[in-house]
Design a protein around this nucleic acid. Structure first.
Length: 817
DNA sequence: TCCCTCTAGTTTTTT
DNA sequence: ACTAGAGGGA
C-alpha cells in the first residue's frame, strides 16, 4: 500500500459544511451525521440513499474526521461506484482522491494483487468468469466421469459456487463430505481438482475473489491488521444482497486490531509498529439496504445479514428512510400494496408528497408482439410529448423476452439499447482475443493457451493438445514452456511449425507488453500488443478471408476491443495488461449504461436495480414469468419474485406501464399465459387498463385459460384487486361470447404483429413524402416525411386507421402503392 | 483434422 | 426457434 496510513486525522479548522446538510429530512440528517461503531440505514426505494451516503462520506472528509485513504465504500456495480466517486468529488473536490470506492470484487482483487504471493499465487493472477470456470469444470466432469452420477457441468458449477459463498472450500468439503455416497465423493474429487487447476493456472474464479480474501485475512492476521488499520470507515451499499462470504469479509475488516504487533511486511513495504501499540477499535461500519429489494438469494445473498444486523453489531444505530423522492404516489401505492403481501417483513410504507400523479397504465396484448407494439407506440407518444428516450426503460423477467421487443422496436424505429443479454465480453471472438492477452500476461494459465491453440485453425486438434500437455507433465514444465520446444513433442513437421509460430507470436507480444523488471511499458502497449497478437497469429486474416457474413461483425467487435484498450490506456497511463484484463473481467451489464445515448434502455428487472426513469414499462406480467415458474418450487421463491416485481415498479418516476400478453411463444411453442397474481395485488382504481385481460378475452374471441383458472369465488373486482376494464368495458365472465370456445389456433391466425422469423429486406425502396403505402399489419397510409440515411432511413407514416407510426424502410413489411 | 448433419436442450435472475 | 455439441464420413 502506498497511501497514507495515518491513524489520527490531521488537525485543522473544520470547513463549513452547511451545504452538505441542506435539504435533508430529519432521518437523512441523522443518517449523515450519526457517529458510532455501526449504523444501519434502512433505505426504501427512492429515499435518497445515494445522496445520504455521498454526503456522509463528504462530511467525514470535510470535517477532517478521516483521510480519504481511510474510507472504503463498497457498491454493487462498478457503475454505482463511479457515480459515487463522482458525486463525492463534486462535494469535496480533490480531497476525495485515495478513497477506495469499488465493488466487493474489485476491492478484493486489489487486496489479492498486493498479497497473492503470500499463498502461492503471483501478482499476475487471472480472473475466471463463469464461462471460463464452466469450461474447466466441463473438462473435469468428463475426466472424473462425474456425468454418470448425473452431474452436469452447470450443476457442479453452481454447487461449487454455493459452497464457496458459504466459505466452504474444497478441502473443507472433503473433510465433512459423506464419502460413502459415491456421488458426493466424485463431486468432492471434481471440486478439489477444480481448485488445484485454478491454483496451477494462477487464477481465481469470481467466488474465490471474496472467499480467498477472507481466508487470507484469517490465515495471516498481521496482513488483515494492515487493512484494519487503514480502513477506519467502511460503508456498504445494497447490504441486503451480500452473501455469507461478503458478510464475513466485512466482519474481518471491522475487527479491532490487537496490540503489540511485530514489525512486518505487507505489499512489499515494511511497516513498523511501536512496541506497545494501543489496541485499535474496529472500523466504523455503515450499511445501507432494504430487505424488500433483496433479489439475489439465488446466488447466495442472505437476507439475514441485514435483518439481524442489530444482533451482529450490538449497539448499532438504525435509521429508517421512508420518504420517497422519486415516484408519484400512485406508483408508491401500487408498490406498497404488492410488497405488503410478503409476510415476515418489517412494516415499511413509502410515501411521497408529490401528489398522486398519473394512473398506472395497463395493457394486455394478444401476443408478445402485440404487447411489444403497445410498448413501442406508447414510447413514441411519450417521446413526442417531450420525454427523451433515455428517460424511458423497458423491463422484463428473462433475457429471452427482449427478442420480441427488439423486433418490434427495430420495425418501429425506436432507438433502443439492450443491457445484458449476449454480452460483449462473452462473445467468442472477444474471449479468444482476451485469451491471447492472458496467455502473455499469465503464462501459467493453460486454459487460455488451450483456448487459442487452434484459433485460428492451425491443424492443432485434440491429439496434439494432449501431446503437449503430456510432454509438459513429463518434463515438469508448464504448458506454455512446452510450446517453445515443438521439436520434442513428437508431432509432425507441419504441426511443429504451427506451434513454433504461435510461440514466437506470444513471445513477441510479451516483449512488447511486459518489459524486463523495473521498466514501464508504454501506455499503448496493451493495444499494440493485442493488435500484434491478432495480426501475427493470423486471427485477423482468417476472419477477413472468411465468407461467413458474421465474421465481418466479429472483425468489428475486435476493432472495438482494440479501441477499448486504447481508451483504457488514456484513462490509466500506467495500466498494465493485467490491469486491463482485471477491468474487463469485472465489468457487468449495468456498468456500460450510457445515459447520453438517447436510447430507450431494455433490461431485466435484476439489472434495473438502483436505476430510475421517468417512464417505465414492466412487461410480461404473467404467471410463470413473474413469478417465474422455477421459483414456485423453491422456498421463499415467490416472495423473492414479488420483491423483484417491487423493484421494477419502484424504478418509475412519473409513468408506470404494466403489460402482458395472452399468449407467449417459448421453446418454439405458443402457449396461453395467465395474468400474474401480482397484478391483483394492486388496487384496481389506480390502474387504467387500455386493454384489460377481460377486454382481450371478449374481443379477441379466445377462451383464455388465463382467466379461467383465476376467477375467485366472488368474481372479479373483489377485495383490493381484479382487472377492471376501462369504464364500461369492465370485464364480466358471463358476457363471454360463445365464439370464445373456438380452438386457440384459429384465432391465433388473427393475432396482429406476428413477426416473421427472417428479417425482410426491401432493398433500396425509395419513399418520399406524399407516397401511399400498405403495411401488413397497419393497412394503408400516407408518408409524411422520410428521415435518416442509407439502411437507417425512416418513414413517418400516417396510417388511415392505425395512426402515426415510424417505420424502418429497409425492413418494414410495406409496399408502395 | 475437418466438415456436415442430426439431436437435445434451452430461457431465471449475475458479480 | 435456435444453437451448441456430438458423431460420422471424407
Amino acid at each position: 500500500m502506498t497511501d497514507n496510513v495515518l491513524l489520527v486525522p490531521p488537525a485543522g479548522e473544520p470547513t463549513p459544511d452547511a451545504d452538505l446538510l441542506a435539504g435533508l429530512n430529519p432521518q437523512q440528517l441523522e443518517a449523515v451525521t450519526h457517529r458510532g461503531q455501526a449504523l444501519l440505514i434502512v433505505a426504501g426505494a427512492g429515499s435518497g440513499k445515494t445522496s445520504v451516503l455521498t454526503r456522509r462520506i463528504a462530511l467525514l472528509l470535510r470535517r477532517r474526521e478521516a483521510w480519504p485513504s481511510q474510507i472504503l465504500a463498497i457498491t454493487f456495480t462498478n457503475k454505482a461506484a463511479g457515480e459515487m466517486r463522482e458525486r463525492v468529488g463534486q462535494l469535496v473536490g480533490d480531497a476525495s482522491r485515495g478513497m477506495w470506492i469499488s465493488t466487493f470484487h474489485s476491492a478484493c482483487v486489489r487486496i489479492l494483487r498486493n498479497e497473492a504471493q503470500q499463498f502461492g499465487f503471483t501478482k499476475a493472477f487471472t480472473i475466471y468468469d463463469s464461462g471460463d470456470s464452466r469450461a474447466l469444470i466441463k473438462r473435469l466432469v468428463k475426466e472424473f466421469q462425474a456425468d454418470s452420477y448425473g452431474f452436469t457441468p452447470a450443476a457442479v458449477q453452481s454447487k461449487i459456487s454455493k459452497h464457496k459463498n458459504e466459505l466452504l472450500d474444497a478441502e473443507g468439503f472433503a473433510r465433512q463430505a459423506n464419502l460413502a455416497d459415491p456421488a458426493e465423493r466424485v463431486f468432492s474429487e471434481v471440486f478439489q481438482a477444480y481448485q488445484r487447476e485454478l491454483q496451477k493456472a494462477n487464477a481465481f474464479d469470481f467466488d474465490d475473489l471474496i472467499g480467498q480474501t477472507v481466508f487470507l485475512f484469517r490465515a495471516f492476521p498481521h496482513i488483515a491488521d494492515v487493512y484494519r488499520r487503514r480502513f477506519r470507515h467502511i460503508l456498504v451499499d445494497e447490504y441486503q444482497d451480500t452473501n455469507h462470504a461478503q458478510y464475513a469479509l466485512i466482519h474481518e475488516l471491522t475487527r479491532p486490531v490487537a496490540g503489540n504487533a511485530e514489525p512486518y511486511s505487507a505489499g512489499g513495504m515494511m511497516i513498523f509498529e511501536p512496541e506497545s501499540a494501543p489496541e485499535l477499535d474496529g472500523a466504523s461500519l455503515t450499511v445501507v439496504g432494504d430487505s424488500d429489494q433483496s433479489i439475489y438469494a439465488f446466488r447466495g445473498a442472505d437476507i439475514r445479514n441485514i435483518s439481524e444486523f442489530e444482533r451482529d453489531f450490538p449497539g448499532a444505530k438504525v435509521v429508517l428512510l421512508e420518504q420517497n423522492y422519486r415516484s408519484s404516489q400512485n406508483i408508491l401505492t401500487a408498490a406498497n400494496a404488492v410488497i405488503s403481501n410478503n409476510f415476515d417483513r418489517k412494516e415499511k410504507k413509502l410515501w411521497s408528497d408529490r401528489g398522486d400523479g398519473d394512473k398506472i397504465i395497463g395493457f394486455t396484448g394478444y401476443s408478445q408482439h402485440d404487447e411489444a407494439q403497445f410498448v413501442a407506440d406508447e414510447i413514441e407518444a411519450i417521446h413526442r410529448a417531450g420525454t427523451p428516450y433515455s428517460e424511458m426503460a423497458v423491463f422484463y423477467r428473462t433475457n429471452s423476452q427482449s427478442r420480441a421487443l427488439e423486433e418490434i422496436f427495430i420495425r418501429s424505429a425506436v432507438p433502443y439499447k439492450i443491457m445484458g443479454g449476449t454480452k460483449f465480453y462473452e462473445r467468442a471472438e472477444i474471449k479468444d482475443a482476451l485469451a491471447y492477452l492472458v496467455a502473455v500476461a499469465n503464462p501459467a494459465d493453460s486454459m487460455a493457451l488451450r483456448r487459442i491453440l487452434n484459433k485460428p485453425r492451425r491443424g492443432i486438434g485434440d491429439v496434439t493438445e494432449t501431446a503437449i500437455a503430456r510432454f509438459a507433465d513429463d518434463q515438469g514444465i508448464t504448458f506454455r514452456e512446452a510450446l517453445s520446444r515443438p521439436a520434442e513433442l513428437g508431432v509432425g513437421p507441419k504441426l511443429q511449425a504451427a506451434i513454433a509460430q504461435l510461440d514466437e507470436t506470444l513471445t513477441a507480444a510479451s516483449v512488447l507488453m511486459l518489459p524486463p523488471s523495473g521498466e514501464l511499458a508504454p501506455p499503448t502497449a496493451v493495444a499494440e500488443g493485442l493488435t500484434l497478437l491478432l495480426t501475427q497469429s493470423g486471427y485477423f486474416e482468417s476472419l477477413r478471408a472468411s465468407r461467413d457474413p458474421q465474421d465481418e461483425a466479429r472483425l468489428e467487435n475486435l476493432d472495438e476491443l482494440v479501441a477499448v484498450a486504447r481508451e483504457f490506456a488514456r484513462n490509466n497511463p500506467e495500466g498494465t495488461v493485467i490491469d486491463f484484463l482485471t477491468e474487463v473481467a469485472l465489468v457487468s451489464d449495468a456498468d456500460d449504461l450510457d445515459d447520453s445515448s438517447g436510447s430507450v434502455s431494455l433490461m431485466t428487472m435484476h439489472t434495473a436495480k438502483g436505476l430510475e426513469y421517468d417512464a417505465v414499462f414492466v412487461t410480461g406480467v404473467e404467471e410463470d414469468l413473474i413469478p417465474h415458474r422455477i421459483s414456485a418450487g423453491e422456498p421463499g421463491g415467490p416472495q423473492e419474485e414479488r420483491r423483484l416485481f417491487y423493484v421494477g415498479i419502484t424504478r418509475a418516476r412519473k409513468r408506470l406501464h404494466l403489460s402482458l400478453a395472452m399468449t407467449r411463444a417459448q421453446f418454439g411453442e405458443i402457449s396461453a399465459a395467465m395474468p400474474s397474481r401480482f397484478l391483483q395485488e394492486i388496487p384496481a382504481h389506480i390502474i387504467d387498463w387500455r386493454q384489460s385481460p377481460g377486454d382481450v378475452n371478449s374481443r379477441g374471441g379466445t377462451q383464455s385459460r388465463a382467466l379461467n383458472g383465476r376467477r375467485p369465488g366472488g368474481g372479479y373486482g373483489g377485495s383490493g384487486g381484479g382487472f377492471g376494464g376501462s369504464g364500461s368495458d369492465r370485464f364480466a365472465p358471463r358476457e363471454l361470447p360463445k365464439s370464445s370456445l373456438k380452438p386457440l389456433s384459429t384465432s391465433m391466425d388473427r393475432f396482429p404483429n406476428r413477426v416473421p422469423a427472417k428479417v425482410r429486406d426491401n432493398g433500396d425502396l425509395e419513399l418520399a413524402a406524399g407516397d401511399r403505402i400498405r403495411h401488413d399489419d397497419f393497412g394503408e397510409g400516407r408518408v409524411d416525411a422520410v428521415t435518416g440515411e442509407g439502411a437507417k432511413r425512416i418513414a413517418h407514416v400516417r396510417f388511415d386507421t392505425a395512426g402515426l407510426k415510424k417505420l424502418l424502410i429497409k425492413i418494414a413489411p410495406i409496399q408502395k402503392l
